[in-house]
């Protein structure tokens, strides 16, 4: 398949993620949207890696290694993020980010 398809798909996924982050109010869903963004990036990264490998670059596997690192960092973020969400939930019985406006006062 031409690489454009992958680029298109990833961009669409990424945009869905961005829209989700901007429009949803539930912390968990926002978080899932962020993960969606990261995965869109992973997909694109691998697609580009293939593209450059086909174009004859010997070090194109680097992008795939990059994907590993993204996964690691995403895992670390999951660990920290879920812990934070759980902490907030246990305090306020809610993960709606609107209630957090009381921070402003």
């Amino acid at each position: 398949m031409p690489v454009q398809y992958y680029i298109f798909l990833s961009i669409v996924l990424f945009c869905i993620g961005v829209m989700g982050v901007l429009m949803r109010r539930n912390a968990i869903i926002i978080f899932m949207c962020v993960e969606l963004m990261l995965n869109a990036v992973n997909l694109l990264m691998v697609a580009f890696s293939k593209m450059w490998a086909d174009a004859g670059r010997v070090d194109a596997a680097g992008a795939q290694i990059f994907v590993f690192f993204i996964m690691v960092v995403a895992a670390a973020e999951v660990a920290v993020g879920l812990a934070i969400i759980v902490m907030v939930y246990r305090k306020s019985q809610s993960v709606d980010i609107n209630i957090m406006n009381r921070l402003k006062n």
Binding site: G17, V18, A27, V34, M37, V73, V88, I97, M100
Partner: peptide
Amino acid sequence: EASLKYFLMGSFSTG
């Protein structure tokens, strides 16, 4: 809550 806010915004910008 600061932590949650920071986390959500921060991971978004990471994306």
